[in-house]
């Protein structure tokens, strides 16, 4: 079985990262923006696992667990904030949340 070259994984994860960044900048729904951020974190996870596997040390894989845990904590807080804002304004569209000049 011939292994898939490392570059393939790196290019895929770089592409995922760019999709995430584009999503944050373009999409206007707070939940979709948040999903794009998760995509960025997951692309970083893929990079970490790739390097970990090709370098033959486990630090990267351990780091992925930390990143996933933190992402879960962030999701809990983020969704709570989005719910709080929905209760007040009945919308999660970022353009409608504009008391301050953006």
């Amino acid at each position: 079985m011939s292994a898939v070259p490392m570059e393939y994984y790196l290019i895929l994860s770089a592409f995922m990262f760019c999709v995430g960044v584009a999503g944050v900048l373009i999409r206007r729904n707070a939940i979709v923006v948040f999903m794009s951020i998760e995509l960025m974190l997951n692309s970083a996870n893929l990079t970490l696992v790739t390097f970990s596997s090709y370098l033959g040390n486990s630090i990267g894989q351990v780091f992925v667990f930390f990143v996933m845990t933190v992402a879960a904590a962030e999701a809990a807080v983020g969704l709570a904030i989005i719910i709080a804002i929905f209760r007040n304004k009945l919308t999660v569209n970022i353009d409608a949340i504009n008391i301050f000049k953006w």
Binding site: F17, G20, V21, V24, A30, V33, F34, I37, M40, L41, S43, A44, N45, T47, L48, F63, V67, V70, E74, V77, G78, I81, I82, A84, I85, N88, K89, I94, I97, N98, I99, F100
Partner: peptide
């Protein structure tokens, strides 16, 4: 609420950059 949402979205965005950089 608005401050919190904006802080959260841009803070988490920055975290994405930091983790990818790491």
């Amino acid at each position: 609420n608005e401050a919190s949402l904006k802080y959260f979205l841009l803070g988490a965005f920055a975290t994405g950059f930091i983790v990818y950089g790491i």
